[in-house]
Design a protein around this nucleic acid. Structure first.
Lengths: 353, 353
DNA sequence: TTGAAAGCGCTAACAC
DNA sequence: GTGTTAGCGCTTTCAA
């Protein structure tokens, strides 16, 4: 049972194990050249005293904090917790600690976060805000801290970028709807100042054009990537004289808002309205009806981001334009889509008007 | 524009501002005795060079890491993100950093987390696992690190405890159901090795007894505080010859599972079955139908926990039995409860059989 | 292979 | 009020 464990330091261990502090240090860091006899003595004392090395001292002398920053936009958005979980788990496996910041989309918080991270001398930062706050990150770039972005990273040394292939999943979604005979398909985008939101919208537009479906521009409305935004957006769509029979949403939270609004209006999903989300948050499979959605794996995203940082750290000479990674998306079929209402099975070769 | 900002240290600042490092330190730490003239010179250089003091060095010499640990059981459970958010926000306001760990209810992870926290010399730890992993925290106690628990904290110096008043909210829930003429009321508990789960169940039992309602023991089943657990538990309840007309759940995730299962079975909520949750996660108001639930404010919980830690740190001599805090719970009415099915309005003074 | 000693960047006596 | 200086607990040369 360790006694007075809180005032143990490497000198105390050295003294009790009758070796130098250097040997204690080597032992603890598993330097193979240490005489097993001595190592054993050291470990015994370490265990007996419950000695845990002081990370700040180590960081100070080694110049490595073993901390990565992780900046997300909203921890309360169910999209992010899994990212945090996976990122943290991998970090711990690599003996890294995470400094997490949820900015709530507030530039001031972002600024403060960057300052805190520099003060703690983070070795890398993953930016998962899907936003464009590049300017706020100047200080980090200046210090040559490896950075990894989603979609929006500039081509610079030590900056990695995870490009999401929105097209693949969204094309699948659109074609699924088309196969279900929908042609009045609405789209609720995210806030369009986000590049990721803009990209999803473009993917929708292109996917529609590709198969010769017209997009009614009154059926493309801007949301906020929140439930509230989804509620409001469906409100707008329902006010249209010619309502959509299906809605594709820029994220799952928006889709949940759509479902909520439909429920309030007595519109049945999927009988009256098909809806498809984007992200595939874990909750998507449990909501009622279970949400058909385009999956963008949060776990994979976290993994890619962590590895990007680690790789950059190991690189002797960084690529002048940074490194690119790609994350696929794909459709996951569940319960929220159905054949267009009023569709009657027609004889083969014939189409309804 | 800061140049070579990454190799700036306090000596460099001192040299350029033509003062000693002590004066730079005092200036940065806003010690009021510094001559404003000099302070101005220091600040100018600091800004110009983009100098950010090194936290590990500060921590090392001051003996204060300015880090709090936060141990939660599952970041992907929507109950926790808001706690994390609020805890972190307050921490930053107080110039603290958070070391977050989501244990996934794995004792090994808990152990590792404790070790990591000690190595980083956290000044306090909030334990939000609602569990009983006390043994694993021995090392922290030994080092006299202030700890704050929910429900399960032992009466010891430097250990604070936030007691949840489960009874109040659950009594309201039971009486609400009774007022709606339900008397076959089921209860889906959490995993009963959690003291919090046990306490909620007891509160249910007592609240029923209080108003003379019998509890059918086959209607009290154990869940897991997850959606999957809720699904399974309702399955069991539905297998009973005499089904409940209302179900009270130990948390909102369980209630979501119940709703999911009911949906699959074609049981309408609230028409056929009333359900009440516990926690009031933010999502509760958005699910379909919106969930009537017992609120236990996550924001308040986070605030209490943070303040408990801070208070303990400031206390010169700790109370020998620690400190207690109390958090109230109360019912929030929404859409998931209704008058018992088949109830006919009876003339005043008369009751249905 | 091991130990002595310098020093990481900062704070806080202590002396001026 | 300001500067000098001794460490905080560790790692890492460098010599032995």
């Amino acid at each position: 049972m360790p006694r007075a464990a809180h005032l143990m330091d490497i000198r105390e261990i050295a003294k009790r194990a009758r070796v130098s502090t250097a040997t204690v240090s080597r032992t603890i860091n598993r330097i193979p050249t240490v005489n097993p006899q001595l190592a054993k003595r050291v470990w015994n004392v370490v265990e007996e005293l419950g000695y845990y090395p002081n990370t700040q001292a180590r960081a100070l002398v080694s110049g490595r904090s073993r901390i990565f920053g992780l900046i997300i936009s909203e921890i309360t958005n169910p999209f992010f917790p899994e990212i945090v979980q996976v990122f943290e788990r991998i970090a711990v496996q690599h003996h890294y600690e995470i400094m997490l910041t949820s900015t709530e989309n507030d530039p001031t918080q972002m600024e403060i976060a960057v300052r805190r991270m520099i003060e703690r001398r983070v070795e890398g930062v993953a930016i998962m805000t899907f936003g464009m706050e590049e300017v706020l990150l100047e200080d980090l770039k200046l210090r040559k801290v490896p950075l990894v972005f989603v979609d929006v990273g500039p081509a610079r040394p030590r900056v990695s970028n995870i490009r999401i292939d929105y097209v693949h999943g969204i094309r699948q979604a659109v074609q699924h709807l088309a196969a279900l005979r929908h042609h009045r398909i609405g789209f609720i985008s995210g806030p369009l100042h986000l590049k990721s939101a803009e990209a999803r919208k473009q993917a929708f537009l292109n996917s529609m054009a590709e198969i010769g479906l017209d997009v009614d521009r009154t059926l493309v409305v801007e949301g906020t990537h929140t439930i509230e935004g989804g509620i409001a957006a469906l409100g707008k769509l329902l006010a249209e004289p010619n309502r959509p029979t299906a809605v594709l949403c820029s994220n799952d939270m928006t889709a949940m808002g759509v479902m909520r609004k439909a429920y309030e209006e007595g519109i049945q999903i999927p009988a009256d309205l098909s809806v498809i989300g984007f992200d595939d948050i874990r909750l998507a499979q449990f909501i009622l009806p279970a949400l058909t959605t385009v999956q963008m794996s949060q776990a994979e995203l976290a993994r890619l981001a962590f590895n990007a940082l680690l790789t950059e750290l190991q690189r002797a000479v960084p690529s002048p334009t940074g490194t690119e990674y790609v994350l696929q998306t794909h459709l996951v079929l569940r319960e929220s889509t159905r054949l267009v209402p009023g569709h009657v099975k027609a004889p083969a070769g014939k189409k309804r008007s």
